[in-house]
Design a protein around this nucleic acid. Structure first.
Lengths: 212, 212
DNA sequence: ACAGAACTACCTGAATTCAGGTAGCACCGA
DNA sequence: TCGGTGCTACCTGAATTCAGGTAGTTCTGT
């Protein structure tokens, strides 16, 4: 019996998965957790074979949770559930130890196949046959080649810029010199190889370094 | 018998809804359409009592489809399905004639209740009891009071700004004077009551006037 | 304990954006 | 046909951002 845990805050999705596997007697959903906290608590008690993990959780983001789970439970297979809009973060999840990547608009057959594959120690990726996905990859993958590593302060300032604040406002907000903000901003412009804050923010969004 | 049509490109969601209503003998899902084109074709043939409409469709956006359906089928009840992240566009959908608004993380009870309500000519909104939703509303609703009306040119320039282009680049791209771009930008800054392009873009995103 | 990274702050000149105008031309509906 | 709206273009001065530096202090990991 393959035990499956769903980590997703949308009961509809969980319902859909139940539908898909109800005719598969060797598969069983043992738990449905709505957020990362519940999920980690549950995993301390019981260790399933497969975890279906949503990218967007209400508390911490799926990427972090993926990393934590991979660290604590190296044997468990993690299949990431996502919408096509977020397909570009595949590589980041794979780096964090995800075993599979399923779009939420999959068929039952593909779903069962995904589970078989990861249990067989293969990495499963949703069919990227459809042109949307390919286009998405083509446009984002180049930019993805090297995701710049940002420091804590840089991330903080990036987020504030994204909130619509300008240099002086951020300086006041963080009790720092405007010069300092400028320095951080400049460093980020370099790291991202762009030449304007707007382009910086766009690229950061494309790379999923920003939520909004 | 209440006929329900689902317009959503995620079979998982459809599966979840099927789960929810399988014990309700008076409800029946007569079709599951994956995009707007299919949906409109189907509706020409058969007219259901209730349409469950996803906000994000692969072809045209849910808001437009909502308007079209409302125009062609004034009697059909439209319930919009959404994630919490997009909850801020409720008012826009209501303006386009939606009858209900359901978050995808609803319970079965709430779901049934929503259907009963809209059939009873009431507008149903998902419980906004949870604090996330309230916070979301508090922050966005003020800004939402008046969604600025943008002209075609303004939208075009807004989109290019969002792509990370700056004034001179846009001017070159559109074969216009930089002065002209500045004028349009300025007008938008006024319409949105902001004082920087970054704030403008943030606000536009908050108001769902931009996709990215 | 020491090196390297991160954080802070400063400077200058050039480019862009912001704020506040004015103004001509085309189009469309009343 | 006349008024309103949208699109275009221009001007000026102030503010902010960009590019390319230097440099001292604090954290952090080995």
């Amino acid at each position: 019996m393959i035990r499956i845990v769903i980590i997703d805050d949308h009961p509809l999705v969980a319902g859909g998965i139940e539908m898909m596997i109800k005719s598969e007697s060797h598969l069983s959903i043992v738990a449905h957790l709505q957020n990362a906290k519940e999920a980690l608590q549950f995993l301390e008690e019981s260790c399933p074979e497969i975890i279906l993990l949503d990218v967007n959780l209400p508390d911490i983001d799926g990427l972090q949770l993926c990393e934590i789970i991979r660290g604590n439970y190296p044997e468990t297979k993690i299949i990431v559930l996502t919408s096509i809009e977020e397909a570009s973060i595949i590589t980041q999840f794979l780096q964090k130890g995800a075993n599979g990547f399923l779009l939420k608009n999959i068929s039952k057959e593909e779903f069962i196949q995904a589970i078989d594959s990861v249990l067989d120690n293969k990495t499963f990726l949703s069919k990227i046959a459809n042109e949307n996905m390919i286009r998405h990859f083509a446009s984002v993958n180049n930019a993805l080649k090297s995701v710049p590593v940002l420091t804590r302060r840089e991330k903080e300032i990036l987020a504030l810029l994204n909130e619509g604040m300008n240099g002086p406002q951020i300086a006041e907000h963080l009790f720092l010199s405007t010069y300092t903000i400028e320095t951080h901003r400049k460093n980020m412009l370099q790291k991202f190889s762009v030449s304007s804050t707007q382009a910086l923010l766009k690229k950061a969004r494309d790379l999923k370094l920003l939520l909004t």
